[in-house]
Structure formats: C-alpha cells, structure tokens
Design a binder for these strands. Structure first.
Lengths: 330, 330
DNA sequence: TTGTACGCGTTATCAA
DNA sequence: TTGATAACGCGTACAA
C-alpha cells in the first residue's frame, strides 16, 4: 500500500501538497497538480479512509441507520432498497457508509447512543424506519448532536432534514379514486398502520380529508402494519363497509384473504407498491413509492446539508398504480 | 468525547496501561484494572473505532461484501437476512462492519480491488452472492490477500473458509422425494440456476444422482434463476416430463404459472424456502435454508479464522419443508 | 504557491 | 507490572 508520502516523494513535492491536490484545494498550480496526479496513477494510490476520518472531524463518514423491529421481517424489500440506494449514492458522493441496525442500541440510553455515534467518527446520520416509541433516539435528533436526514419522519431543525412522499396527499388521492370508482359508497373501512408510526397520522388525515369532502362515513382501525391484524379487523368490520382502504400493501393482502374466507367482495387498495403485490396477483391500486430513489435523495440531501447548511423538507413523487406480475419478475 | 488519555489521567495511569486493560492483556494487576475500569465508567468512555483501526493492523474491521446483479432485485429477502445476520453477530463479536455492495468495484481491476480493500483497513472479507463470472474478485480471494469467508462458494485455502448448506445432498433428497411420491415417473425436468453460479453445479449433481439411482431420465435446462426463463422452459419441456424440479423458489413460481397457462398439472418443487412462497400460496416442497443463521455462522467463522487460523468448510443444516402463509405473516 | 510540523486516538515496542 | 514514545496516514495552520 502506497501512502501519501510515497506519492509526495514520487512527485517531488510535500505531503500537504498532495493532500491539497486530492482534496481540490485552490492555490495549486496546474503543473504541480499534474505531477501529483501522475504519481497517484503510477503508484495506484488510494487514500486511506480510516486515516482521513481520524485526522479531520469533517470526515466523509456517515451512519446509515435502519430500524428493524422483527428479527425476521416478512418483507425486506423496502429496507433493502433503502440500503441499496444509500450505498449507490454514497459511492457517487464519495461518502463512506457505516451501516447500523437498530439492534445495536437496543438497550442504550440517549447518552450512550450519542457516545456510540461519536465513537464511530461519523459526520451525521441518515435514518430509515424510525418510530415514535424510540424516544431516546428521537431526542438525540432533536437535540441536534449530529447532522441528520430522516426518511418518513417529519422532523426538521437546523441540522435535520427529512425526505418522504406526501403521504397525506397520496392517501387522499387514492381514497378519492376508490370511493368515486364505486357506485353509492356509504362507508369506508380504513386499516391504519401503527399508532406510533410517524406516517400513520399523515395517511390517516388523507382518508379523513377524502371522506369529509365526499361526505362518506369512515371507520378507522389501527392494524399495526400487520397482515394478521388486518385479517381480523376485516372479519369484524368489512360487512359494514363498502370499500376497504389499507395503509400498507401487506395489510391489503391480509384484508383480501379475510374477504375470501368470508366469501364476500369489497374493493381494497394498498400502500407502498411493493413487488410482492405482483406475485400474489391481486391487481389492486396502491400508492407506489420509489424507495431506491428516496434513499438516493436522502444521501444527496445529507451531502448538501453538511456542505451548504440549511435544512430542507423534501417531498418525493409517488404514483397511483397497480403492481403487475409481468413488471415485477426477472 | 473523552479519549483514552482522559481515562489515563483520571485513573492516574499511563495511556498504554489503559489500552492494555481494555484489550484484556495479561500482566496487569487487578488493582490497576479496577482503577481504569472505574475511570472508564465515570467518563462514559467509548473507544474510537477509527483510531483503533488506523493504529493497529489487527483491527476488528471487516468488510461484508454483497453481490447484487440487478439494480432492483425482485426479492431481497435473502440478502437482507444475510446482512441482518452479519450485523447481529458482528455486534456480538465486537467487530466493526463495513458494508460493500458489488457496484463499488464494478469496473475495477483485481489490483484496484485489493487497493480498495486495503484502503478500508479491513482485516478481511465475508462474501455473499459471488459468481464465477467475477474473475478478478475470485482471483483476489485465491491469492489470499485477505482472510475471507465465502458463503455458497466452495473455495478453501489457508486464509479462506466457506459456509453453505450441502446443496448436492439437499437437492438429491428432495429430488428423490418428488420422484418417489408420484406413480410411475419416467422423466424429470430440472430447471437449473445460472451457469456461472457456484452452487448450480452442486445442485445439478444432486438431481443427477437421484435420477441415476432411481433410473429416471433427466432433462436439465439452465434457467438462470429467472422466473421468466423458467416459464419459457416449462412451456417447451413440461409436456414431456412427469415432475419439474427447480433450483430456486422463484423459478418454481414461474414454472407453476406457466403450467397454469398451459392448463396441465405437474408436481413442482423449489429451493431456498423464501417467505414469498407463503404469500403465493403454492404449497410446494422446497429446501429451506436459514439465511440468517448462515450469516451468523459466517461471521463466527471469520472471527475464529483470524484468531485461531486454519480454514474450514462449514456445512449448515437445511430442511425439506413447505412454506405456509400462516407461518410467514406477522 | 509550497512545505514543515503537529494533532487526531489508538496500539505496540521497549526500557524502567 | 507499568509508562514514555513512536508509529498508523491524513488534514491543516502556519511558516517560508
């Protein structure tokens, strides 16, 4: 492994000059720049990320935090897209990623979490899947110990941006379509997510808005993003509803399965647009999110945030669509 | 953030003593040990992973490498389980994980890849999803530049262990069951994986063995782990076969869908045991692998390898089972 | 515009 | 059994 001083010797300059060239400082003559780059190529020099991180507090290290509740989640598609998008964009932006799964700070206090992230020498955090019940973590964010970008959590302060689709608008639009597509809808059953989910409220407000506008009765139940609960609640409330609107595709699948058991039909729609929907072949409408792009934008925003400063709330596009088997398979 | 020297001052000892205590060196009196640990507690000291990695070449950093071919894979369940298992175990073993997706070295030469991993200051690699077509990467492993543990790739040398289920035995057993469960089977259609997959050959050998033993004709076709190809090949070859054996659950799904279109029935089985199988509700037999445990064992083996030395080939358990919707949903 | 020298927080060597 | 002190490789203030 050649180091910076090797490059410096080879190019006949000082180490700091090499550093400056590599970090795109001004005040370096084109001639020196060329000499250095030539030496870099000849020696196949690759900067040592670790040394760089240690040396400067403005390192390019970033923690990607993923909250996973169940050890073995039914569907990992969303988190995987988040991870993959994060890595791809970080790679482009020359950021080094430290992946952190929530199990790591399961029993940590807020203070210990802060210590933990500081010990990782990260510049900040990009966070996926945070719930309200994670009080300590949320406080840490609100106290602005780190720059951070939250996905699907509408918290914004001087050091904190967030990225998400407009869940309220998405759920509102889809609800309207579902209601208006049927004749004579009187009552809607809404299967909401977890009480402590940040997006749950937004989506709920979307259905509320739609029902209010169209003068429709609404029965909203929390199904905790669980298919099993969605099945149970469908069995209890579906007879009394004309349309079933679900806050996730998985719950929609559960609901449809319950309807089949009950041997009745109700129009159902989902939320998220996961590929699984194509496999089960329920051609229902859903609010399709591009998790890959959301993640890429979260990283972009992080880069911007630490460089330019000034937090932002970024709303991503969604699409009301059906997920077809044909589009999903490879 | 308190550093080691803060702890040293507080405990009234030298920094190197603190280091020794924290790294469980011998030749430290219990008295000093206690003093140091007390100071550590009082100051909430957390060691800086970056500095540690820079200082010692025997760092506890490890690269978890995940090969993903398609940008947006249909089913990410397997890779997510791999990642999750890796993180959980690494956390237990006090290893720091650097996650590397294969896009990173898409256009790198072998030499550049070596430089890249060295620049990360990692002690070694744990690798998931490697294919034979990744020539440069494979050479890098074979040249033993790093300690590594491979999953589903039977390469072993002084610095390289591997972990996988006994694919040949698994495919053999399931094939026998499939053939013996039907009356009068004459010919088997086998949809194999990718030609350049390491496990493809092993699984193929499993069916070959079973067919040879039972004196059954075998038509083996490469379907590249693609549902679409599995559908196409089924349409061409299914009429002429009594049983269809697939080298992945996804291909089995594709095959069944083709059979439905053709309006004929053939017994089909899969391989992997993914949860998706529960959702599509095809109650077919499959070779169920525990990807989470496989990953945990890969990390364990890595730790053992760098500490004790001496590579190993570790065979994990599998289970011939059906994946039911009830067992899969939350 | 360039180079010297110090600091980042550890680990490791070696002398005490 | 302990503690100075020198690496590890890079960034940067400051001097030249």
């Amino acid at each position: 492994m050649s180091s910076m001083s090797d490059v410096a010797k080879r190019a006949g300059v000082g180490v700091s000059t090499v550093s400056k060239v590599l970090n795109n400082y001004q005040n370096i003559s084109q001639e020196t720049r060329d000499k250095v780059m030539e030496a870099v190529d000849e020696l196949n020099y690759v900067p040592n990320a670790v040394a760089s991180a240690l040396s400067s507090k403005k390192s390019k290290r970033i923690a990607v935090v993923v909250f996973i509740n169940n050890e073995r989640q039914a569907i990992d598609e969303i988190n995987m897209q988040y991870l993959f998008g994060s890595f791809e964009q970080s790679n482009k932006e020359k950021l080094e990623v430290v992946t952190v799964f929530s199990i790591v700070f399961e029993n940590m206090t807020k203070f210990e979490m802060i210590q933990y992230f500081k010990s990782l020498s990260v510049q900040g955090l990009v966070i996926y899947g945070l719930h309200k019940e994670q009080v300590a973590f949320t406080e840490m964010i609100e106290e602005q110990h780190f720059y951070s970008v939250l996905v699907d959590v509408p918290i914004q302060n001087q050091k904190t941006s967030y990225v998400m689709v407009d869940h309220q608008k998405g759920q509102y639009e889809l609800s309207k379509i579902m209601i208006e597509n049927q004749q004579n809808v009187q009552k809607v059953l809404y299967l909401a997510g977890r009480r402590d989910g940040y997006v749950t409220d937004l989506r709920l407000q979307g259905v509320v808005d739609a029902c209010f506008e169209l003068n429709i009765k609404l029965n909203a139940q929390y199904a905790d993003f669980s298919e099993r609960k969605a099945m149970e609640l469908t069995k209890i409330h579906a007879f009394d509803a004309d349309v079933i609107i679900c806050a996730s595709d998985l719950m929609a699948i559960g609901s449809i399965n319950a309807l089949k058991e009950m041997d009745i039909f109700r129009p159902v729609c989902g939320y998220d647009g996961i590929k699984l929907l194509g496999y089960v072949k329920y051609h229902i409408l859903t609010v399709k999110q591009d998790f890959f792009m959301i993640a890429k934008n979260a990283i972009k925003e992080f880069k911007r945030l630490i460089e330019e400063g000034g937090s932002q709330a970024i709303l991503m596009d969604y699409e009301i669509a059906r997920i077809e088997y044909e589009d999903v398979i490879i």
